[in-house]
């Protein structure tokens, strides 16, 4: 590692720690939450933003050490575009397989057959 100005040192450290904490909480949620649909929330939101924080740290580090470097943004953009899509498909799969929901889930569907994937 090369020497950094003091402000950059602190700012980069802040973003990296913030990102790592979010990713940690995301995985904790994956472990702790009661049913599949609830567990879906943690990785799609928290882990994605956690990686976003790490990527901001990386951009700042390489931009201060050797010239503007923005290519890490590609990973961030890609993750933020794809996270909702994979979450949506997994939620569809969960509904399709009729996974058990936790007992305090309230169902406000008026026409459940509207959302079933069955071809009957």
């Amino acid at each position: 590692m090369t020497e950094l100005p003091v402000w950059a040192d602190w700012v980069i450290s802040f973003f990296i720690i913030l990102g790592a904490s979010f990713a940690f909480i995301g995985s904790l949620g994956l472990l702790r939450l009661p049913d599949f649909m609830a567990r879906l929330h943690a990785p799609t939101k928290n882990t994605t933003l956690g990686v976003g924080g790490v990527i901001i740290g990386s951009i700042l580090y390489f931009s201060t050490t050797d010239g503007l470097s923005l290519h890490e943004l590609l990973i961030a953009v890609f993750l933020f575009l794809t996270a909702p899509i994979s979450a949506h498909l997994l939620a569809k799969a969960g509904l399709h397989l009729e996974l058990e929901l936790s007992e305090n889930t309230r169902d406000f569907r008026t026409k459940p057959e509207q959302y079933s994937d069955k071809d009957d």
Binding site: G19, A23, G26, R39, V51, I55, I75, A93, G94, L99
Partner: peptide, 21 residues
């Protein structure tokens, strides 16, 4: 269930790419 495991694999991918960065 299987969707749980797929979701977990997805999370593992994302966490390991953060480790690489």
């Amino acid at each position: 269930s299987l969707p749980d495991r797929i979701l977990t694999l997805d999370t593992i991918y994302i966490n390991s790419l953060a480790l690489l960065i």
